[in-house]
């Protein structure tokens, strides 16, 4: 019977921003004019004006359109990374919950080891070894990102598996696996969604960084980190070529991080504690 907190102006702003960025990621490539992807050296480094709102880059391409087109490789690949490793985390936590105790111990020890490693550096190593590309970066980050999710979820299942209704169901002969997939996981969904949103925020920063040092997306991709990497040599003469994609990363990262905070506020209390009170 709890009334939904009404939509504040700040929350509404965040929702609109996220929607706009998602729209850019899905439709940006279709809408962008042909010239966004081909070079026109004659028009290189035009400063922002009425025709090119954010100016043009070293190849004479419109920076604003490239930023819009870059939403797809930047954001969608970050979302893909977080989705993959969240699923790996779910699988590991589920296994740890249903298997015998010694295997659980082993899995969680492995998770701890994963946590103790410098994830970004290890991802850089993998991406570099596989040969630099956006796909390499996505794979590398997916295989290094899961331990936190796994540990978080395992700590939740450890609590919920001893809840009275779960114990009751176990006494009735319901298997741990079925309990896990039918009750515990659905109950943890909001926690996962909150974490997913915050993680997308972090991942887009890291992925941009990987592209920036050259292990992620390669030019002429409009991926934002790659755009900044390309613009790096011209910052002092054409600052807009670096400023715009960086601002796009920042806007996206902040929006998704705030989205996580909002989801936490709206879903957090009710879901995580299972409505045990009142």
């Amino acid at each position: 019977m709890m009334a939904r907190p009404h939509l504040s102006l700040g929350d509404a702003t965040v929702f609109v921003l996220v929607a706009l960025i998602l729209a850019a990621a899905v439709f940006g490539n279709l809408l962008a004019p042909e010239a966004t992807f081909s070079s026109d050296i004659g028009n290189a480094f035009l400063p922002p004006d009425a025709q090119h709102w954010l100016g043009t880059d070293s190849q004479g391409r419109d920076v604003l359109w490239r930023v819009i087109a870059g939403a797809a490789p930047s954001l969608l690949s970050s979302m893909l990374v977080v989705t993959i490793y969240s699923l790996i985390g779910v699988v590991v936590a589920t296994l740890a919950t249903v298997v015998p105790r010694w295997l659980d111990e082993g899995l969680m020890r492995g998770t701890e080891i994963g946590l103790a490693l410098p994830g970004v550096i290890v991802a850089m190593g993998f991406a570099s070894a596989m040969g630099p590309s956006l796909a390499s970066a996505v794979i590398a980050m997916s295989i290094t990102g899961w331990p936190i999710t796994a540990r978080l979820l395992r700590s939740i299942t450890r609590q919920t598996m001893v809840a009275p209704y779960v114990q009751g169901a176990q006494v009735m002969g319901v298997s741990r696996f079925r309990l896990m997939t039918r009750h515990v996981l659905p109950n943890s969904l909001d926690v996962l969604i909150i974490k997913w949103s915050g993680d997308v925020s972090i991942t887009i920063l890291v992925l941009g960084g990987l592209s920036f040092v050259g292990v992620g997306a390669q030019p002429p991709s409009a991926e934002w980190g790659a755009m900044i990497s390309d613009a790096r040599s011209y910052v002092s003469t054409a600052w807009w070529t670096a400023a715009a994609p960086g601002a796009a990363i920042a806007l996206t990262a902040v929006s998704f991080s705030l989205l996580g905070d909002i989801l936490q506020r709206r879903l957090g209390g009710a879901g995580a504690s299972g409505g045990a009170r009142s």
């Binding site: 925020s201 920063l205 941009g208 960084g209 920036f212 040092v213 980190g225 900044i228 790096r232 910052v235 002092s236 600052w239 670096a242 400023a243 994609p245 960086g246 990363i249 920042a250 806007l251 990262a253 902040v254 991080s257 705030l258 905070d261």
Partner: peptide, 22 residues
Amino acid sequence: AAIAAGLPVFWVALMLQFLLGT
């Protein structure tokens, strides 16, 4: 802090380099 935590480090580095250094 929410905004600062969302700024890409390498971009801040470039922009600071440009604004304060150049």
